[in-house]
Design a protein around this nucleic acid. Sequence first.
DNA 1: GTCTATACAGTGATAGAC
DNA 2: GTCTATCACTGTATAGAC
Lengths: 191, 191
Amino acid sequence: MSRTIAERADVLPLLAEVFRAHGYEGASLARICVGTGLGKGSIYHFFPGGKEEMAAAVLDEISLWFHEQVYAPLRDGEGDDVQHGLDQMFRVVGRYFQSGRKICLLGVFALGGERDRFAVAIKHYFVEWMKALAAALERGGRDAATAAALAQQVVGGIQGALVLSRACDKPALFTHSLQRLRDDLRDAAGA
Amino acid sequence: MSRTIAERADVLPLLAEVFRAHGYEGASLARICVGTGLGKGSIYHFFPGGKEEMAAAVLDEISLWFHEQVYAPLRDGEGDDVQHGLDQMFRVVGRYFQSGRKICLLGVFALGGERDRFAVAIKHYFVEWMKALAAALERGGRDAATAAALAQQVVGGIQGALVLSRACDKPALFTHSLQRLRDDLRDAAGA
DNA sequence: GTCTATACAGTGATAGAC
DNA sequence: GTCTATCACTGTATAGAC
C-alpha cells in the first residue's frame, strides 16, 4: 500500500506544524515522519538537504504567503484603500494565527538557537512586514518617523500577544490585543 | 585538579544562559557541561532529576527574582510611590534583558514544545507580572478594566520587542520600545 | 564534589528493495 | 515515490573511582 503525494508543496504545511509544535531542535525526524505521514525515505526524497532544507522551505513558503496576503495589499492601496489594506492585514493575520491558537514560526525561530542559521529569512520577514506597514501609514498621512514607530509597535505587539496568549493558554488574549492595536491605529489617524 | 563550586545556586545563572541560547531541546548535556564548566557527574550531583530539574530550578530562580525586583515594588507603592514602582519596573527590566541583548527564557519556553511541561511556571510568571502591574495602575487612578488592558499591552509589548530586536539583531529596538511603553503609561495617566 | 567509563535509546542520514 | 534496514553518532542517564 503506497500513497502518492505528488507535490513536495503538499508536505510543507504539515512540516510547518511539526516545527511550530516542537521548534527546530525538537522536531526530530521521527516526529516529522509522524506529522507528515511519510517515511524517512520519502522525506529525504523531497528534501535531500535534510532538516535544514525542510525548515528553509517552510520559511520560504510562509514568507511568500505573507508577501502576497499581507504586504502587497498594504503597499498597493491609495487613498481609502490604505485603510482597506490595514483592515485586510488585521483580518488575515487574525485568521492566519487562528485567533491565537497558532503561533508564529518566525517568532519561534527568532528566539531559538536556530536563529543564526536562518537569520536572513527571519530578519527579512519582520523587516518587510514593518516596511510595508510603515509605507501604508505614511500614505495615510503620517510622517516617516511616526509611521516607522507605529509599525514597530504593531508588529511587536502582535508577536508579544502571541507569546502571552500561548503562555496563559488564552487565545482570546490575542484576539483582544489585535483589536486594540487596530483601534490604536485608527484613533491616531483621526487625531 | 578539582574546582569546588560550593552551591548549586552558583550554577543556575550559567544554566539559564545555556537554555536561553539553545532552548530546552537544544540544550544538550554536552552544551550544558561546556556552559557550566562542570562534568556530567557534577551536574547530576546537583540535579539528580536531569535536564527537567535543571530547567525547573532555573525557572524558579527567575520567577523569584522578578517577584522581588519587579512585582513587589509595583505592589507596595502608594501615592507617588506608584509612579516610582513603575519607573523601577522599566529600569530593572531594561537592565535585566541587557537592553535587548538578552531574551526572556519564559518567552522562549512559552513558544517552544516544552510549554506543556512547564505550563504552570510559565503562566504564573506572566499572570503575576500583569496582576502586579494592573494593581499599581489601579492605585494610580485607573479603573480595573483599563488597568488590566494596559498591563497586558505593556507586558506583551515587552515580549514582542524582545522578539523583534532579536530577529532584526538590533538591541536598540528593544530600548526604544521600552521607552515608548513607559511614556504611553505616563500620557494615559495625565489624560 | 568531581571526574571517567559506560549503557543503550534515539538522532540525522544513506542505500537499496519494491 | 515509498518503504525497511542499517549506518555512525549524539542523546540522557548511571555507576564507581578518586
